[in-house]
Write a protein that binds this DNA or RNA. Sequence first.
DNA 1: ATTCTTGTTATACAATTGTATAAAAAATTG
DNA 2: CAATTTTTTATACAATTGTATAACAAGAAT
Lengths: 216, 216
Amino acid sequence: MSRKTFQRLTLDERKRTLLEATLTCVAQQGLKGATVRRIAEEAGVTAGLVRHYFGSKNGLITSAYAYLIGQLTAEADTRARQSTGDANDQLRHFLIANMTMPNLSEEKVSLWATFIGRVRYETDFADIHREGYRDYLTLLESLIEPVLAAHGRPHGSAECRRHAIAVNGLIDGLWMEGSLNSGLYSRNILPDLVTGACERLLRLQEGSLSGGKQHT
Amino acid sequence: MSRKTFQRLTLDERKRTLLEATLTCVAQQGLKGATVRRIAEEAGVTAGLVRHYFGSKNGLITSAYAYLIGQLTAEADTRARQSTGDANDQLRHFLIANMTMPNLSEEKVSLWATFIGRVRYETDFADIHREGYRDYLTLLESLIEPVLAAHGRPHGSAECRRHAIAVNGLIDGLWMEGSLNSGLYSRNILPDLVTGACERLLRLQEGSLSGGKQHT
DNA sequence: ATTCTTGTTATACAATTGTATAAAAAATTG
DNA sequence: CAATTTTTTATACAATTGTATAACAAGAAT
């Protein structure tokens, strides 16, 4: 009876391995299927490591939620910054980043929803949600402000905040329903749809975000 | 050792009791806390009844999801129909119904999110989601069409569908973030915010939905 | 009243869960 | 190469879970 051979990893590598295994498990079968044993197997280790690195299963799950939120925001942020164009172009890229892969994915939305369901009764989750939401809103606000300015529209702090809340709602809703995609429409319409809708929300000139390829 | 005294209820009464107990439990502690025993206790019965009425725990949970979706849509639908005013007024009431109690509640959103997290990997949940979404979208479309017509704007089938998708996204997103309310803004701003945003999405005259009390 | 049906309780059980603890092996240090 | 550290495995255990089954009791039928 020889023991399993193994390799020691650095703290960060091992943690990331476990976090990603956790997300994989939760995405596949929900929290019910994400047992310590299954997660460990998915990560290629044994169950004891969870305690070693995260203290408890709950510590692992909580960290996995924060990890996911970080991924989502980072992706949209990066895509916006990669744009070399003007303010319109940056906002456009940000919007589209949320309506295309990898962010627009059934797996990501499933994970997100599963975790959101715990925000109400677990303070750890509530904290992560609040911070993530605040960051996202701030980022969106900072993208909207110069766009409004460039269009010669009012762009005070209160206005931007209000617009950011509405646009964020639009993004969240479309992201969710679009990812779960009930087969009622094609996902391909989402990028145009979100840019067009955002133009209207901000009362921009038609085509300023969608590049003139806009319907209706 | 005397047994628990009990009262026999009709099939519908008992089912509803169990469904509501289920939602209460899931809202309080998520699916993990919604054990057959806890649900039964909440309903004032013993665990065996779950099997008797719903076949299995999964049958109960699935039915509870359908029950919740029905409640949400019915409330918005009713509020829209209660309006005695014109098309604008009906759409306005529909929107507001989603931004006020009882639909705008942390409990309802928590429940909804928890269930949505299972849509991806359980066909029963996927079916319920798809149907509920389709119904909701159809209802919204039927409210939008006469509004566009009254404003002399294009109101073909494709246009209405497209608008309904966007408006639905807006509602979903605001409903969710507003209900979870991270303390970043007051819920009181949501009714005005959603009507104002919807006006813009549909490119209506300012104040047509919000009754002129609109900001920005 | 008595019988009959079936809604309801009570109990049992195998399976699974999270976690605590001890043993082993890998890498680091001297 | 020997000693040390600490990552990792392996095992054990109490608690909880969903469900199956049998006993019981409430209300309807006769």
